[in-house]
């Protein structure tokens, strides 16, 4: 009878131990987790005295990973491949968006990392990183994820404040290349808003992935549809890949004259982009002035993400 009691007690003890161990293991979550990002073109244009914020979505297959715990994050920065350019960031928040991304049947949960740029500037800055990495240092490890590109511009002012040059029309020409809708050109209407003549000397797109082929800019009489073929509009076979013809511009606008320009674009970076700002330099009364448009969303399409676009990193959970 006593022997039976001992066996019974031992069995209960083993059952309790198994139960406790399973609770401990379950609460700790799995030992590893995977992280990935969708590569995007991150563009910033602001005044030198303005604070900049950036939100970067990161996807994890494990909701209980240490990486989503703000308290465990020590330092954050955006760098280029060789870490020659480093933008120090302050992590202000980590939020779960509730979006789920499925990669090869596996669910990845979206977390939005909210950062503030820490640098202070007194002069204009122009920093272009075609392959940008987000580096997050936790107490025991470091995570480095390619987030796409960063085009970072700090300017002293957004223009002359007099409004000599006016943008009266802005839209994109979007063509389907390799089954993907791609921005191949920009149509802009420019108006001289002054009593004096002015000359457009430079058009710059504020995104490292695209370049205006200034030598191929065409003055047009009618504003085309966004889906018109760029080659048909230019009158010759145009390829969005390749080298931009980087000629100095000399487009004159008489007093209160409006001209519509078709600006063909060259894709010089790898990151898909559908929004970017503009910088237009012009000469008036012997002075060079600049017009800025800080951000514009040109189009949006339901694009399918390709599996090869994802780099998935596996980390130990602590």
């Amino acid at each position: 009878m006593r022997k039976r009691n001992i066996i019974f007690a031992s069995l209960i003890g083993v059952a309790v131990l198994v139960f406790v161990l399973s609770i401990v293991l379950f609460s700790k979550g799995s030992d590893t987790y995977k992280l990935t990002t969708i590569k995007q073109a991150y563009n910033v244009l602001s005044l030198v005295n303005e604070k900049d914020e950036i939100v970067i979505p990161i996807y994890s297959n494990n909701k209980k990973c240490d990486f989503v715990d703000k308290k465990k994050v020590a330092n954050c920065s955006i760098t280029d491949t060789l870490e020659d350019n480093v933008f120090k960031l302050s992590l202000t928040d980590i939020t779960s968006s509730g979006n789920v991304l499925k990669i090869s049947g596996e669910e990845f949960y979206e977390y939005e990392y909210h950062f503030t740029f820490l640098g202070e500037y007194t002069e204009e800055v122009r920093s272009l990183i075609d392959k940008a990495y987000l580096k997050i240092e936790l107490k025991e490890k470091e995570v480095r994820l390619c987030i796409g590109s960063l085009s970072y511009y700090k300017v002293l002012n957004y223009g002359d404040g007099i409004n000599n040059l006016d943008l009266v029309c802005l839209k994109a020409i979007v063509n389907e290349l390799d089954d993907e809708k791609t921005i191949v050109g920009v149509v802009m209407g420019l108006k001289n808003n002054s009593y004096d003549g002015l000359t457009i000397s430079n058009i710059n797109l504020l995104d490292v992935n695209l370049k205006a082929s200034s030598g191929e800019i065409k003055i047009i009489n009618e504003v085309p549809s966004s889906t018109d073929d760029i080659s048909a509009l230019l009158g010759y076979e145009y390829k969005v890949s390749g080298v931009a013809i980087d000629n100095a511009l000399d487009i004159s606008l008489d007093s209160y004259e409006v001209k519509y320009l078709l600006v063909p674009l060259k894709r010089v970076g790898d990151v898909y982009t559908n929004r970017f700002g503009l910088q237009i330099d012009y000469l008036i009364n012997g002075k060079t002035m600049t017009y800025y448009l800080d951000d514009f969303l040109y189009f949006k399409a339901n694009q399918n993400l390709k599996l090869e676009d994802f780099e998935i990193f596996t980390y130990e959970n602590n």
Binding site: S226, F296, F299, K300
Partner: peptide
């Protein structure tokens, strides 16, 4: 909706 093209005009 498949695509949205935005146009700014004055």
């Amino acid at each position: 909706v498949e695509t949205m093209y935005y146009e700014l005009y004055e």
